[in-house]
Computed example of a mutant assay.
Amino acid sequence: MSAQETSRVLVALATRLAAADEGQSGALWRLTQESRQLDANLVRLPADASVPGHVEAELDVLLVVVDGAGHLDDGVSLQELEPGVVAWLPKAAPRGLRAGPRGLAYLTVHRRRPGLTIGGRTAVAEEGGEAACALDRVCPACGRMRAEARAPFCSWCGEEVGAA
């Protein structure tokens, strides 16, 4: 691509949701442009599924509900989620989601995670990859390192990875 990106439509969320197989869950779409400063994922939770409460220590996340309904658990109360609701999930704040009986589809947007570094050098070498002790933090769906070892979903691609 040229040095200057051009503005363009990337996805029609309703169309992407409609085209997904019934019962398909997890990340249905993700922002993939190389020069981006943001990450974004369209995620669908099946009926009555949940993202257990957790804390994202590094990033604020904007969550936009596009289909279905459910609840946001901020650690103190449950807040209603329905299409059109925009929620702010500040870094270091507890968060959990629970889909309603029709499921829940939402778009998350946050600052792109920088590559992990150690002493100014990237943690993943040109060859060899991550140290063996960190393999449990590698997402099986996208192959990237999860920042939070106990996070139930990959913060890069949105796929469920289970608690470590």
Rank of each mutant, 00 (worst) to 15 (best):
Gly158Leu: 03
Leu116Cys: 06
Ala105Leu: 03
Arg111Gln: 12
Leu59Val: 11
Gln79Trp: 03
Gln79Asn: 07
Leu10Arg: 09
Asn41Gln: 15
Phe153Thr: 04
Glu22Phe: 03
Val85Ser: 10
Gly75Gln: 05
Arg112Thr: 11
Leu59Asn: 07
Leu59Lys: 09
Ala12His: 13
Gly75Asn: 05
Ala147His: 01
Ala20Arg: 02
Leu62His: 08
Ser35Ala: 13
Arg144Met: 09
Thr32Cys: 10
Glu159Asn: 14
Asp136Tyr: 06
Tyr106Glu: 08
Glu56Arg: 07
Glu5Asp: 15
Pro52Thr: 00
Asp73His: 13
Gly143Arg: 05
Arg36Glu: 15
Ala92Tyr: 01
Ala49Arg: 03
Glu22Ile: 09
Trp29Gln: 06
Val138Phe: 04
Arg111Gly: 12
Ala57Asp: 08
Gly84Thr: 09
Pro114Val: 00
Leu89Asn: 02
Glu22Arg: 10
Val124Pro: 13
Gln37Ser: 14
Glu159His: 11
Met145Glu: 02
Pro90Glu: 03
His110Glu: 12
Arg121Tyr: 06
Val51Cys: 07
Val138Arg: 03
Ser50Leu: 04
Pro83Ile: 10
Leu62Val: 14
Asp136Leu: 08
Leu72Asn: 08
Glu34Val: 12
Glu159Val: 04
Thr32His: 07
Leu17His: 02
Val11Thr: 11
Asp48Trp: 04
Leu45Cys: 05
Ala18Phe: 04
Arg150Ile: 00
Val55Asn: 03
Ile118His: 06
Leu17Ser: 05
Ser2Val: 07
Leu116His: 08
Asp67Leu: 07
Ala125Phe: 06
Arg98Met: 15
Ser50Ile: 02
Glu80Arg: 10
Cys142Ser: 06
Arg8Ile: 08
Leu10Glu: 13
